[in-house]
Each structure stands twice: as C-alpha cells, then as structure tokens.
C-alpha cells in the first residue's frame, strides 16, 4: 500500500483514534461533539474532507465507536467518517510494554496508511480545529514537505462540550491556562494534537515510530525529529486548536507517576525521543493486515502474524542527521 494519487481524494484526511473505553470520563460525548463541530466547520467552508477513525483494540464489552456514531449523528456526519477497526490481538502482538494500555501512534499509522486526502492531519478525538487553521485549509495554500503544527489551547473543564461555539472557544476567560505559542525549530508542545503534512511525505517518513513500541509518550515529538532529520521543515500553521480539559489527561497523570515514570500507562517519559529516529518496516501502518469490510465505510483489520512487524528490530533505531546535513535519507543505522 503506497501513496497514490486519487482524483476523488479529499483535500484533507483527519486521522483520529479512540475506542469506547470511557477514557477521560466522558470520552464518547467529547468525541461526538468535537467530530460534529469540526465536520460542520469544514463543510461550511467547502473543504473536501474525510475523517479516518481508527478504533484500536476496541473492548469487546462496549459497542464500537462507529456504532455509537451511526446511532447518534446525522448521516452527513457519519458519511464523512471512514472507520478502521483494529483487532485487539495486534496490540498484544506489537507492544513492547505490557503496561502500555493504548498504542495511539500505531493506531494513527493504520489511519495514515489508509487515508486518501492530499493532506493528512493527525489529531485527537477531542481536539477542535481553530478558525485560522480552517482558513488555511480553505485557502488550500499548504505546501508539501512542510509539517504544520498548531498550539493547543486548553479550555476549562467546566465547559459543556455540547454547547461549544466560537465565542465560547475564543473567550480568554475560558482558557484553563495561558495559551501556548510554539517555537522553532520543532514547534513542539501537545504535538500529538496537531500534525498536518501532505500524505506523500507521511508515507516517505513511514509514519510514526513503530520500532520503539515501549511508550507512546514522546512519539509525536520523535516524529518531528524524524521530519527535520529527513529534510522536511516545520512551521506554525498560524492559529491554535482547542481542547477541553478532562480527567485522566497527561497534564494530571504525570503528577501521579512522578518518581515512578516507568509504571505510567503511556510509557516512560524519560526515553530519549529527541535523540534518535527510526526506520520503520515497509509494512508500517499494518499495511499487510487483512482488511474485511464490515459495513459502509467501515473495515476490520483481521489479525495476521504476517502483518505484525518483528518484536525487535534494532537496525531500525537510527541516529538523526545533523540539522545542517538534513535533507536526504536517514543516516545509517548504528
């Protein structure tokens, strides 16, 4: 599966991942409210788009998000969403850390690999795209080979996500903390909430790191290191995205695991994600997983060991190119 031109491809694929496990307390509510808001605003600006929802290792005890979506949202919304359900066996087969509850970036890779848009935005289910970002998408002046980043501005937990509008989102009084601004060269900070890049470049980089599967924390920043090392540039897209605070977010969890970082369910934050990059196998994003249609715009990735990358691939751990040398292929493996 490679990046190929599609005449009917949308301008942008929004890749999100999640599962119906009550993450953050009211995950489904936040997910649906955010999805509908973003879809409405993208549609209002006539921006051709699709959402690629990857349900990674969904629990058998709860309905799929795709089913909840179909039940509670208008057809116009559901028709903009393609769903990829990933068999839970992939998580067990691929993880290198039994404590890790959710492989967010393996899931995002599965979505990137199947996205059809000219550009791909990897974000999270509860991230609301801001007006300036929408304006950039509407102008269609994005450039290939450029990683676009947006700062995430956190809003107070007390806000009702079902009643969000621009006045509410943009009111300074609703900010949970001062809005961050991104700084070069990496423009890091809540990186997993907004990485926008043309699909070809995503494929050239082979998505997020699949070699190091011990943590998910830091994977987003590690992707930025990979991008710069590969000669891509990183810029601020020009405006923020919004996120309503909720329980169980990293902001609160990191305090809980201070001093015992290795026990965190998102992995040990101390791994040197800024110092190494990776060379994913060509089968990244579960490209060899058997795809089984299970409804309109919905596929299920059946488990197959053939699709699972090696448990250990030390040759895939690579040192980044020095900044001044970046521009070509990654440096040889050490």
């Amino acid at each position: 599966m490679t990046a190929v031109a599609d005449q009917h491809a949308p301008y942008i694929s929004v890749v999100i991942t999640g599962r119906n496990d009550g993450y953050g307390g009211d995950f489904v509510k936040r997910f649906l409210a955010t999805l509908q808001f973003n879809h409405r605003e993208l549609s209002a600006r006539a921006i051709p788009h699709e959402f690629v929802l990857v349900e990674w290792a969904p629990p058998a005890s709860a309905p799929l998000l795709a089913d909840v979506l179909a039940e509670r949202c208008a057809p116009a919304v559901t028709e903009s969403v393609r769903v990829v359900v990933v068999d839970a066996a992939y998580h067990d087969a691929m993880t290198q850390n039994p404590r890790l509850a959710y492989h967010e970036f393996l899931a995002k890779n599965a979505g990137i690999r199947r996205a059809r848009g000219e550009y791909v935005l990897t974000t999270n289910c509860d991230v609301i795209v801001g007006r300036q970002v929408l304006a950039r998408l509407q102008q269609r002046d994005l450039e290939p080979g450029v990683v676009y980043r947006a700062a995430r501005w956190d809003l107070k937990e007390a806000l009702d996500v079902d009643r969000l509008d621009w006045n509410c989102l943009e009111a300074p009084a609703n900010l949970a903390r001062p809005g961050k601004h991104l700084r070069p060269p990496y423009f890091r900070g809540s990186t997993g909430d907004f990485i926008l890049l043309d699909r070809r470049s995503f494929h050239r980089l082979h998505g997020f790191n699949e070699v190091y599967r011990v943590a998910r924390i830091g994977m987003d920043f590690n992707f930025l290191v990979q991008a710069l090392s590969s000669g891509l540039s990183i810029v601020d897209v020009g405006g923020p995205v919004y996120h309503v605070d909720h329980e169980g977010s990293y902001q609160t969890a990191r305090v809980t695991y201070a001093g015992r970082e290795a026990d965190a369910p998102y992995g040990d934050v101390r791994w040197p994600f800024e110092s190494v990059v990776y060379r994913n196998p060509s089968t990244w994003g579960l490209s060899d997983a058997p795809e089984r249609p299970v409804g309109p715009r919905r596929m299920y990735l059946d488990f197959s060991w053939n699709a699972v990358p090696p448990l250990v691939d030390l040759a895939g751990v690579v040192l980044p190119m020095r900044r001044e040398m970046a521009g070509g292929d990654l440096r040889d493996s050490i």
């Binding site: 993880t95 850390n97 039994p98 448990l311 030390l314």
Partner: peptide
Amino acid sequence: DILQGAANV
C-alpha cells in the same frame, strides 16, 4: 528498552 520490553512481553 526495546530488548527489555520484548523480554518482558
């Protein structure tokens, strides 16, 4: 880390 993780798994 990878080797340790793989061993654990």
